[in-house]
């Protein structure tokens, strides 16, 4: 059985880890980028980033003051018995986590600006459930900051232009975004489906560890081609110039209507926080 109190505690721990600890694959890329830079200013940016990661870990403080909107992606087996429990526990855990960690109260009414101060609100929390074969579940927590989210984009491209046009749009956009999304960034790109599916795939692409490429080799080659070109722009850490503008490009795709080429970009800051919780059919959480 899945104990309600333990589930809430585990979800809070997930949000705490998400706010405070950077995944090892991200830190490792940041260290590589630090060693590659030669200029004083970009070097100093990476030093501050790495010092901050250590300080946040040592003192148990949130890495960034923008602790984001708590975004949940749940992949659950058809025979997983606890979706209802998770659904009920998430808002309770968010409210408690806001007080305890603490998280910045980041959800405001879009029109009145009113802040309920608990990171909840109308149509919140942001939870996406995907059903798959099996009897266990994986919960990804992605605290998503505002500065990077502001640099998201959707383009309905001309199908005959395809990848060439996608690459051009991404390069133009990252040049325009400059220091605003807190580079070096991670670029989640979603292609195909409709406008909505492309956006969702782009955000989901951010869940993939930075040392994993797309399993399709042709797509992996596209990821590398875009990443190399983006880094040649020279935006650098914090837009102050330098060799590393993005740490990774992750593409996810699905089929498209022949008349469309939906392409979405979701930008993630260097502070690419993620946490994972796994629950099996007996309610055992890891």
């Amino acid at each position: 059985m899945l104990d309600e109190k333990m589930l809430i505690a585990r979800l809070i721990k997930g949000m705490r880890d998400g706010a405070i600890e950077l995944p090892a694959d991200v830190t490792s890329k940041l260290k590589d980028a630090y060693s590659k830079e030669t200029g004083d200013i970009p070097k100093m940016q990476f030093k501050a980033i790495l010092d901050n990661i250590k300080l946040a870990h040592d003192e148990g403080l949130p890495l960034c003051q923008d602790t984001g909107i708590q975004v949940f992606f749940i992949k659950a087996g058809y025979d997983f018995p606890y979706l209802n429990d998770i659904h009920k526990a998430i808002p309770v855990a968010i409210e408690k986590a806001t007080m305890e960690i603490p998280l910045r109260p980041n959800t405001v009414d879009p029109f009145t600006g009113k802040n309920p101060k608990n990171n909840l609100g109308h149509n919140m929390p942001a939870v996406t459930v995907e059903l798959v074969e099996g009897d266990s579940a994986t919960i990804h927590i992605l605290p998503k900051g505002g500065g990077s989210e502001n640099m998201s984009a959707l383009w309905m491209l001309t199908p005959t232009q395809g990848f060439k046009s996608l690459k051009k749009k991404v390069l133009e956009h990252i040049q325009f975004a400059a220091g605003k999304p807190c580079p070096p960034t991670i670029l989640g790109i979603g292609v195909g489906g409709g406008a909505d599916m492309a956006m969702k795939l782009a955000k989901k692409a951010l869940l993939r560890p930075l040392d994993c490429t797309n399993s399709n080799e042709e797509i992996a080659a596209m990821e590398k081609e875009i990443l190399d070109a983006v880094n040649e722009l020279g935006v650098g850490p914090m837009g102050l110039g330098g060799k590393t503008t993005a740490l990774a490009v992750n593409i996810e795709y699905t089929s498209r209507h022949p008349a469309t080429f939906p392409t979405a970009l979701v930008v993630q800051c260097w502070c690419n926080r993620r946490a994972i919780i796994k629950i099996d059919k007996n309610g055992v959480m890891t």
Binding site: N52, L61, P62, R104, G179, P237, M238, L240, C271
Partner: peptide
């Protein structure tokens, strides 16, 4: 410019709180 995202490092340098204004009206951030 201070490094974006380096919130813990900034908190250390900013030290102590002397005062706060408009907290009720505007909220924490």
């Amino acid at each position: 410019s201070f490094t974006g995202g380096a919130g813990a490092l900034a908190a250390k340098g900013l030290g102590k709180v002397k005062a706060v204004y408009y907290l009720e009206e505007l909220g924490m951030p």
